[in-house]
Amino acid sequence: MWADAGRRPPTTGGHVQEHDDYPAPGRVERRPVDADESARAGRSWWDGAADAYQADHGGFLGDADFVWCPEGLTEAEAGLLGGLDDLRGRRVLEIGGGAGQCGRWLRAQGVGEVVSFDLSFRQLQHSRRIDEQLGLRLPVVQADAQRLPFADAAFDTVFSSFGAFPFVPSADDALAEATRVLRPGGRLVFSVTHPVRWSFPDDPTEHGFTVRQSYFDRRAYVEEDDHGNAVYVEHHHTVGDWVRGIAGAGLVLGDLVEPEWPPGNDRVWGGWGPVRGRMIPGTAIFSADKP
């Protein structure tokens, strides 16, 4: 989930580290990055960050809970995937599940056929750890969202909670792959950093309201090592990019949810927090159906 194969830290052009054991930040660049370089950087960074990420955010995400975003919207509240009675008879795929918290929640609700995958092997090890603690097994696969190892029309429902989509260079290609494995009549739902956030710094205070870069600058945020190799990559796609990608994949957009910051949520997560969250959207959740 959230960027992670199971939840990576949602960010907007720069990740905020709350734990000492995250990989050291590299030299920041804004430049194009292709699919292979993105995948190599993502796998390496998340393998190195998984322990710290789960230590920092595992309590908020829950071991078997389904949280769509830092605002705290849950699937139990929103029902974006549809009614549980219907889901219990469907095959479900979680994209970029991290430690599998969302998929495990579905399993706990009686959805029998749920598969989760993540790019990071270490995140999948955390998924197995939670399985053993809870006695609730979630099948997982190590895979890249840009090249799904599943047959055409293999799933009735595909979803991603901040998993993988913020880290792929082509929204069109990622959405086409997700649609390929979706059966006619199926639904795709995914949450990402709200594209407008890319214009603002990763600062959850009142200082984070100042626009610092163009919304239309689609160059990737890249951290590089001393040899110029990408060690962390995050990609920006505008709202229009996502909508055109959904339409181009043959899906019908049903909803765009922009969760409001709820009263009582004082948690700060990178650039997300109550000060800015009550004024501008931090998350976009797209819901689309395959005719």
Rank of each mutant, 00 (worst) to 15 (best):
H15F: 13
H15I: 12
H15C: 14
H15V: 14
V16D: 12
V16E: 04
V16W: 08
V16T: 03
V16G: 03
Q17R: 11
Q17I: 03
Q17V: 01
Q17S: 15
Q17K: 03
E18V: 01
E18A: 13
E18P: 02
E18G: 03
H19Q: 06
H19Y: 10
H19T: 10
H19R: 15
H19F: 14
H19P: 06
H19C: 14
H19I: 11
D20I: 15
D20N: 15
D20P: 08
D21G: 01
D21A: 02
Y22A: 10
Y22N: 11
Y22C: 08
P23N: 10
P23M: 14
P23R: 06
A24N: 04
A24R: 13
A24G: 11
P25A: 12
P25Y: 04
P25N: 12
P25K: 09
G26E: 02
G26W: 07
R27M: 07
R27Y: 12
R27W: 08
R27V: 11
V28G: 05
V28L: 06
V28Y: 01
V28W: 04
V28R: 06
V28T: 08
V28H: 05
E29F: 15
R30P: 06
R30D: 10
R30W: 13
R30Y: 14
R30T: 07
R30E: 10
R31Y: 03
R31T: 00
R31K: 02
P32R: 12
P32Y: 00
P32M: 08
P32F: 03
P32S: 15
V33K: 05
V33A: 10
V33Y: 02
V33P: 01
D34G: 01
D34L: 06
D34T: 09
D34H: 02
D34F: 05
D34R: 04
D34M: 01
A35R: 04
A35C: 03
A35H: 02
A35K: 03
A35V: 13
D36I: 15
D36A: 13
D36V: 14
E37C: 00
E37M: 01
E37R: 00
E37G: 00
E37F: 01
E37L: 07
E37P: 00
S38E: 02
S38A: 08
S38Q: 06
S38D: 04
S38T: 09
S38C: 10
A39H: 03
A39S: 10
A39R: 02
A39T: 15
A39W: 03
A39Y: 01
A39V: 11
R40Y: 13
R40P: 14
A41D: 05
A41Y: 09
A41S: 12
A41Q: 04
G42S: 15
G42M: 06
G42I: 05
R43W: 08
R43E: 15
R43M: 07
R43V: 12
R43P: 15
R43L: 12
S44E: 08
S44T: 14
S44C: 05
S44W: 00
S44P: 08
D47G: 02
D47A: 06
D47L: 01
D47F: 13
D47E: 06
G48E: 05
G48Q: 04
G48A: 04
G48D: 07
G48S: 01
